[in-house]
């Protein structure tokens, strides 16, 4: 059986998609998949994903309906607005929600590993995370990653 490992380090809406899309697709193709969530990537394992947002700030490649000066992007509520618009667009274009892709991954036995060090570092409450995940460290991940056909850092 082919194997794929992904390290997910980002906690923004745009950067949350690649790990979940690739993990769910690889699982559908018969790969054994593990995703190691570390640093801000741990946010993607929360039951509630409403804090996973997209910011137009320092994200100049983000397509905007109207050009927006940086000074406007820093105003309160801009991030929430950009997130709302992006989610609306994703839905209109028939792109799955993060929750949906994450569920598909879990149903397909993709193994989610939460970085124990990050959990301690940011004092996360494990009760905030979804069930069915494992907690581990770099060495545990390497054991699997060393045997993979594809290994990605996102």
């Amino acid at each position: 059986m082919k194997k794929m490992a992904i390290i997910a380090t980002k906690g923004t809406l745009d950067m949350a998609y690649p790990p979940f899309i690739l993990a769910s697709t690889a699982a559908a193709l018969g790969y054994e998949v593990q995703v190691f969530f570390t640093f801000y990537g741990l946010q993607l394992l929360r039951k509630d994903l409403s804090d996973v947002k997209i910011s137009p700030l320092a994200n100049p490649a983000m397509p905007m309906p109207v050009p927006m000066p940086v000074l406007v992007q820093v105003l309160p509520g801009m991030e929430t607005m950009a997130t709302m618009m992006m989610k609306d667009k994703l839905k209109k274009k028939g792109v799955a929600s993060l929750e949906e892709l994450r569920t598909v991954c879990q149903e397909a036995d993709v193994k989610f590993i939460a970085c124990q060090m990050t959990v301690d570092l940011f004092e996360f409450d494990k009760n905030d995370f979804i069930s069915g995940i494992e907690y581990g460290g770099a060495a545990m991940f390497m054991e699997f990653a060393g045997e993979t056909d594809i290994c990605l850092f996102v």
Binding site: I21, S24, T25, A28, G94, V95, A96
Partner: peptide, 14 residues
């Protein structure tokens, strides 16, 4: 219909 990558594949698999 109306679904975008990777949903058609995931639903085909299912």
């Amino acid at each position: 219909r109306g679904l975008n990558c990777p949903l058609p594949i995931l639903k085909t698999k299912k």
